[in-house]
Design a protein around this nucleic acid. Structure first.
Length: 444
RNA sequence: GGAAAGGUGGCCGAGUUGGCUUAAGGCGCACGCUUGGAAAGCGUGUGUAGGCUAACACCUACCGCGGGUUCGAAUCCCGCCCUUUCCGCCA
């Protein structure tokens, strides 16, 4: 555990960490930031946690001693009553004992809550293979697929292409609802549907996932289980008058499928592929990606979710990542894979790879999938465990993983932009044509 | 939305005049015996969480969830949730 005095790059232990990490970019600076935040976590969360836990154990010890006493007296009362002997003298002090137990129960309950509140606010610990860094600039590119095409003309973005083709209507979407919503029409709507079906078919038939269609609305307990609550309530749409939320990703209902359950070890690894719409308030992203379909309040996504044994989770992460990449390879869209650094990692993840697809109009790669291993972080919150069939088998937490396979809206964007020609026509990727009734091009 | 019935351990299923049930019995499962091998049979074991332990042991809590009555609640009272059936409404 990191103590206050150790939060500096000069500390010998930290020097070792630096060497091991092998990060060439101003290691002292990075370490300073990392250690400062680690020390802050320690002072604000872990130290109080320790004290609360000591108090909690004390209270539990006292409470259980009194409960044991009460049980013994009650047994004696029962025995005397059965033998028709008087027992009233034993009632005397027991009312007081009962009251004390009730008080201690309340104390324990309060301490439990205080401990939980702290625990729920502590992010997951990054895996050793996650690159060290303060932010996204420390992310590491793992590999690239395909070559961005050279276009001999001025490329259009998907908004221009879609509007001209008559398959995208953002103005009317704004009328219907507001900013960051869209209407797809004709071949545009069909392309969205084709992509969903193509992705689900590939993952279920080729990659062995089981298809699942969950609710698009979940309760607060489910949101806590996967880590969206309590910290990220402002990112969610909540239903007025209910303790219900619109899901921001299928990860929430699908991972919580087994909340509070103990799975058979022989059933692992369990792999699901789910299509759902996703709803995000995008609070705090005002002004970012305001044009087009890149950042919407509602978008379609096919999500991959796995439950597995702890020792297999990093192998499963690589497989899941490859399964997601396969969609882009089949669509022949150029992409790269990036390992997120500790500074860019989400709250719940121990390791995350982003897949970024090439967007000609922006002349850069943009995130189209995020594949993460949460280790037992979500499993602990949602109480998802497994157990072998042997008599003395121990129950343990599963590891959970998920990744987009893929974000459908952004895939739609990538196809329009990467497959456009000089005349504003869009060639439909070979693998999608069966889903598009044999159509080969989108044209005005 | 209205009415009725019900929610007990992996499953089935006892237990409702409160106290030898901190959960009978059965099925399933695991291990062992038996067998050439299997089945049957017999025996043993078989929940979760927490506390205390070096460990075994032991202790505490949990009979949908929460609260109440009581010396004591699976059992009585109140509220909520869920399931099933019927009615209404509805895609």
């Amino acid at each position: 555990m990191i103590k206050r005095g150790e939060a500096s790059a000069e500390h010998p232990t930290n020097q070792k960490i630096l060497q091991a990490a092998g990060n060439p970019q101003a290691p002292e600076k990075i370490l300073e930031v990392l250690l400062a935040s680690a020390a802050q976590v320690y002072i604000e969360k872990l130290e109080p946690l320790e004290n609360l836990d000591i108090k909690r154990r004390e209270a539990i010890g006292k409470m259980e001693a009194l409960q044991a006493e009460r049980n013994n007296v009650n047994k004696e009362i029962a025995r005397r009553k059965a033998n028709k002997e008087p027992a009233e003298e034993l009632f005397a002090g027991m009312k007081e004992v009962g009251a004390q137990i009730k008080d201690l129960e309340k104390t324990v309950d309060e301490l439990d809550q205080a401990v939980n509140e702290i625990l729920l606010g502590i992010p997951n610990a990054p895996h050793a293979s996650t690159p060290l860094g303060c932010n996204e600039t420390a992310n590491v590119e793992i590999r690239k697929f395909g070559q961005p095409k050279q276009y001999g003309f001025a490329v259009k973005d998907h908004v221009d292409l879609g509007t001209t083709l008559g398959i995208l209507d953002l103005d009317r979407a704004a009328k219907l609802t507001g900013a960051r919503f869209s209407v797809l029409t004709g071949a545009g709507a069909r392309l969205e549907r084709a992509l969903i079906q193509f992705m689900l078919d590939t993952h279920t038939q080729k990659h062995g996932y089981k298809e699942i269609l969950p609710p698009f609305i979940v309760n607060a307990a489910s949101m806590r289980g996967t880590g969206q609550l309590p910290k990220f309530e402002q990112d969610l749409f909540k239903l007025q008058g209910f303790d219900y939320y619109l899901i921001p990703t299928a990860e929430v209902p699908v991972t919580n499928l087994y909340a509070g359950e103990i799975l058979k070890e022989s059933d692992l690894t369990i792999s699901y592929a789910a299509y759902t719409p996703c709803f995000r308030s995008e609070a705090g992203s005002y002004g970012r990606d305001t044009r087009g379909l890149i950042r919407q309040h509602q978008f379609d996504k096919v999500e991959l979710v796995k439950f597995c044994r702890p020792e297999e989770s990093y192998d499963e992460l690589e497989k899941l990542l490859d399964n997601a990449e396969e969609i882009l390879r089949l669509l022949q869209l150029p992409y790269r894979v990036v390992a997120l650094s500790t500074g860019d990692l989400g709250f719940s993840a121990a390791k995350t790879y982003d897949i970024e697809v090439w967007l000609p109009s922006q002349n850069c790669y943009r995130e189209i999938s995020s594949c993460s291993n949460f280790e037992d972080f979500q499993a602990r919150r949602a109480a998802i465990r497994y157990k072998g069939s042997e008599a003395k088998a121990k129950t343990a937490f599963v590891h959970t993983l998920n990744g987009s396979g893929l974000a459908v809206g952004r895939t739609w964007v990538a196809i329009l932009e990467n497959y456009q020609d000089e005349n504003g026509r869009v060639c439909i990727p070979e693998v999608l044509r069966p889903y598009m009734g044999g159509m080969t091009h989108l044209e005005p």
